[in-house]
């Protein structure tokens, strides 16, 4: 695990239709310690996905600096695992080969990467689906594979871009609980982007509220772990925090 430092990050781009320069991210600084889980929330258009895309190396920043474990980020790399809202599983590979893709790229031999993939699949209760193709699985199962695929590559930092936004509400709660359980086991450094306030508070050690390309607030979450929805929903701290964050997001 490594820390993630974001310093004065900025992104402007030229909008060819409007003929003007648009600022997506104005000036964002954010530090995530080793093994810390940070949620970033904000209304749509606040620049949260743009930040993740820059941290992942998919988009170049127009200003500022991103460091993983002190090393500056240049383009995409295996040190930052990404979980996508669209799942982004390879449709032509079985679940096992999807999960083993990262190790394959590192040159891990077939038998060894299958063993790694099976171990991680078991972690998410997906052992039975190893030989199936992604389109044969439900949305919830597909995203479990998406999470497990990122973890099996043993990244320093895990980047999650609204990963549970396109699964149904019941499945989402189960996935959130599974994620906290796995996170407690593996203690990854996580940057989690969402627009769902309850989700942000439930999962994180800190919630960062973003507005118009800037950090508006940075709120620590001290709810006890392990967290399960049946208990957390009743928790007074959770209710107070969620209400507070929701208020800020709506005012943002």
């Amino acid at each position: 695990m490594k820390s993630l430092e974001i310093r004065n990050l900025q992104k402007t781009y030229f909008d060819p239709y409007a003929g003007t320069k648009v600022t997506a991210v104005q000036d964002v600084s954010l530090d995530i310690r080793e093994g810390e889980f940070v949620s970033v929330v904000g209304p749509s258009g606040c620049g949260k996905t743009t930040i993740l895309n820059m941290v992942a190396g998919f988009l170049p920043a127009t200003g500022g600096e991103i460091r993983v474990g002190g090393r500056p980020v240049k383009g995409p790399g295996a040190d930052r695992g990404v979980v996508f809202q669209s799942f982004a599983l390879f449709p032509w590979k079985t679940v096992l080969d999807n999960v083993g893709f990262g190790p394959k790229m590192r040159g891990v031999p077939k038998a060894e990467r299958d063993r790694i993939a099976r171990e991680y699949l078991a972690l998410a209760g997906l052992s039975h689906a190893a030989d199936r193709y992604p389109n044969e699985l439900s949305g919830g199962m597909q995203q479990r594979v998406g999470v497990v695929r990122a973890l099996a590559n043993d990244p320093d930092v895990l980047l999650m871009d609204e990963p549970f936004a396109s699964v149904d509400a019941q499945t989402r709660m189960t996935l959130q609980e599974e994620l906290t359980r796995i996170w407690q086991e593996k203690q990854h450094t996580v940057l989690f982007i969402t627009h769902d306030v309850g989700e942000a508070v439930f999962l994180a050690d800190r919630v960062v509220v973003l507005s118009k390309g800037r950090v508006m607030r940075d709120i620590p979450v001290t709810l006890p772990r392990p967290r399960v929805w049946d208990e957390v929903t009743e928790d007074e701290d959770f209710k107070r925090l969620s209400a507070e964050v929701l208020h800020m997001v709506r005012a943002a």
Binding site: A56, P76, A78, V82, S86, A88, F101, M105, A150
Partner: peptide, 14 residues
């Protein structure tokens, strides 16, 4: 889909 090459790159694919 754009996310597929992105996923491959972030899993360490050259």
């Amino acid at each position: 889909p754009r996310d597929l090459p992105r996923a491959a790159l972030s899993l360490g694919a050259p």
